[in-house]
Amino acid sequence: MILFKIIISPLSLIYWMLSSSRNALFKWGLLQQYKSRIPVISVGNLCMGGSGKTPHVALIIEHLTDYNKAVISRGYGRKNKVIIEANSQIHNTKDTGDEPMELLHKFEGSSFKMIIDGNRKNALRYLEMHKEKTDIVVLDDGFQHQYVKRDLNILLTDFSNPFYKDLILPIGGLREHRKGAERADMVIVTKCPKDITPAIENEIKKRISCYSSAKIFFTKISYEALINHHNNKTSIDSKKKYLLITSIANPNPIYEHLNENNIQFATKKYRDHHNFTKTQIQEVINISRQYDAIITTEKDWMRLKETELVNAVSLDILRLRMKMEFIYSKENLKFKDQITSLIK
């Protein structure tokens, strides 16, 4: 492994030079940024994935119940590249991507818009021309997309793999150098253990402060309930055996949660944003006969429910509902105040 990293290290140097040059062009004003009249919050990270962007976008939206809000996402993996104002009645994950569809299912209504477009500037202009006023916009995975100015730039970093310990692609998982953190107005350390100590928090703050002067918050995962395909809550049974299907960047927190609750389960893991083939679905159908029920994530359910799996198995297919919470309630209040203060 060490030899392999030495061999590919020149590629990391090239990647670093390209990303640093691009950042410098924005910093010097040689690449122009679009300033929207709508307040813009960006949520993103320095690494390739797994820091919890979608749950944190949901956390922001939950704080904006009294406002007309929109989320702009490029819709990773979608087939159609034209701009879409998503509607769950006419669009599927091939149109939107899985994470935008997950957000749409949670918040769809008259005060929420889900806009899918890789060009965030075009998406903002679409909202600005819309007859219905949008009070605030959230850019999903927008940290590297600097063609749009933002009023609040939120950087996420995973507690188990903080950016200050990572390296640039392809040796590590960083999309750009750690110094990119200096663009953040706020850093959120995500997926923290519930019993994180002040000493560990202070060490993390100290390490992050080498790259950013932003305010630092800490969040944790909260698993709420299992939801069946009738959208009803159901309890988990330690006497049953479950098949856990995931295609997310880091399923380890789910494994830990199930183990803590003494749940018997086996895993079927796919790469992040995986599009299931008919062969793979048939394989899952065959394997599932050994189990009492199937568990998956809400994100994965967006794609699985569009496959033959739903009608081919008699087992319950349960999705594990989760959300992000601040470690300290006072941080939640500060966070909400900072977000709502952007709306004029």
Rank of each mutant, 00 (worst) to 15 (best):
E182V: 14
F112P: 11
G118S: 15
N122V: 12
A184W: 09
I116C: 01
E102G: 04
G180F: 09
G172R: 05
D140R: 05
N119V: 12
C192V: 10
N153Y: 02
L167Y: 11
Y147S: 11
R150A: 04
F107L: 06
R175T: 05
I188N: 01
T197A: 02
T134Q: 03
G172W: 05
A123L: 14
E102H: 10
M114E: 06
G180V: 07
K194V: 10
T134R: 02
Y126L: 10
D158I: 08
I196E: 12
I115P: 12
L169E: 05
L152H: 01
I136Q: 00
L174I: 10
C192P: 12
E102M: 15
L169T: 06
N153M: 02
I136S: 00
F163M: 02
L127H: 08
N161L: 12
D141Y: 05
N153V: 02
R125L: 15
S160K: 14
N153W: 01
L174A: 06
Q144D: 06
H145S: 13
L127T: 09
I171N: 08
N119Y: 10
K131D: 11
L174E: 05
L124P: 14
E176L: 03
G180P: 13
S110N: 15
H105Q: 12
M114L: 14
F143M: 01
P193H: 01
P162V: 07
M129G: 07
L155A: 05
L127P: 07
S111P: 05
V148M: 00
K113R: 15
G118Q: 13
D117C: 15
D158Y: 08
V138D: 00
I168S: 05
A123N: 12
F112D: 08
D135Y: 04
C192S: 07
D117R: 06
V138L: 00
M114W: 09
V137W: 04
E102P: 04
L152C: 01
G173Y: 07
H145F: 05
I116A: 00
E182H: 15
N122E: 14
E176H: 06
F107C: 07
E102T: 08
D158P: 08
L127N: 08
V189W: 02
K179Y: 14
L124E: 11
Y164P: 12
I116E: 00
R175I: 03
V189Y: 02
P193Q: 01
P162K: 02
A123P: 11
G142L: 02
T190K: 05
D166W: 03
Q146M: 15
G109Y: 13
K131F: 04
D195V: 01
D166I: 03
I116Q: 00
D141V: 03
K106P: 09
M186T: 12
N122H: 15
D185A: 08
Y126W: 11
L169Q: 04
V148N: 02
D166V: 03
V138F: 00
V138T: 00
R183P: 10
H105E: 15
L156I: 09
L152W: 14
S160Y: 14
E128F: 10
G109T: 13
T190M: 07
R125C: 09
K113L: 14
V189Q: 02
I168M: 12
K106N: 09
C192T: 10
P193A: 01
L167V: 04
